[in-house]
Amino acid sequence: MATTDRKNETSKSAGGPSLSETLLQRSYLLFGISFVVLLVVWEWTVTYFEVDDFIFPAPSGVATALLRGLFFYDVGSGVGGAADFMGLMKTSFYNHISHTLFEAVMGFFMGSIIGLGLGLLFMQSKWVEAIIMPYVVAFQTLPKLAIAPLFIIWFGYEVKSKIFLAGLVAFFPLLVNTMVGLKSAATDQIDLMRSLSASRWQMFWKMQFPNALPFIFAGFEIAVVFSLLGAILGEFVGAGQCMWGGRGQCGLGILLMQMSFSSDTTGTFAILVILSCMGLGMHQVVRFVKKKVLFWAPETDKTMGA
C-alpha cells in the first residue's frame, strides 16, 4: 500500500501542473490571494503610520461601517458627532441601495431600448441618420453633469429625473454600437443574401441584425455601468424622498454627499464598496445574458462608444 501511495504522489508531482500554472489557470484564486495581501498591507500601513480615519480609513473600519449599515440599520459613524442634518443616517443602507438600483436599472432599460431603437431606425434611412445624427453627437459631447440640474428642474427631485439621467448616459453606447453592428456585415454575407434575392426585411432579420448582436451586447455592457453612474450623478444634484419607507431622502449618491459633508471617510469607503459590488453585479447579469444569447460568437471584445 505504501509503495503505491508513493507512486501516485510522484506521478502527480511529475505530470500535474505546477503551483504557478494552477494559479494562472484559476485567476479567481490569484485574485483572492492578492486581495487578501492588499488588505493586510493596507491595514498594517494605516495602523503603523497612525493615519487618521478621516484621511484614509483602515479596511477593518470600512468593514465595520459596512456591516453596521447592512445589519444594524445605523449608517453613520458620525466622526466628531457630525450633524445628521438630513436624517439620512437613520435610514437603512437597503433603502438607499434599492433607490439607486431602481433608478439605474430603469434608466438602463429606458436608455438602451431607445438607443437600440434609434440605431435600428437610423440604419433604415440615410435621411433620418443625416438629419438627426449631428444633434445626437452634439448632445453626447455635453458633459452630463451640466445637464443634471436641468433635469431636476424638468422632472423634479424624485426618481424620475434620476432615471432619465441614467437613461441618457446609457443611450449613446447602444445607439453607436447598434449602428456599427448593423454596418459590420461582410460583403460576402451581403452577396450571399443578394444572390438568393432576399428581400430587405429578410436581409435584415436573417443576417444584419444577428450580425450586430455582439456589438449590441458590448453596448449593453457599457450602458449598464454608465446607468449606475448616471443615477449617482442625479442624486448628487438632488435626491428625492424615500419611496419605500425610511425617513428623509434616499439614494446612495445623496448618502455619499452627506458622509462627505460630515467628514465620514470610513462611511464613504463603505458606500464605494457597495457601489462597486452593484456595478459588478449588474455587469455580470448582462454578461450572463450575453453568453446565453451569443453562444455562437467567438469571444472578442467589440467595445465602442465608451
Binding site: A186, D188, D191, L192, L196, Q202, K206, P210, A297
Partner: peptide, 28 residues
C-alpha cells in the same frame, strides 16, 4: 434562383447550425 454560389470563405451564418445554414436558401 437557378444559380448557387459558393464563396471563398464559407460565409456561414454563425448563429445557425449545419442544418439551419443548409436550409437558408430554402427559407429565403
Amino acid at each position: 434562383n437557378d444559380v448557387g454560389i459558393v464563396f471563398q470563405d464559407p460565409v456561414l451564418l454563425l448563429w445557425r447550425n449545419v442544418l439551419q445554414n443548409t436550409m437558408l436558401p430554402a427559407e429565403i
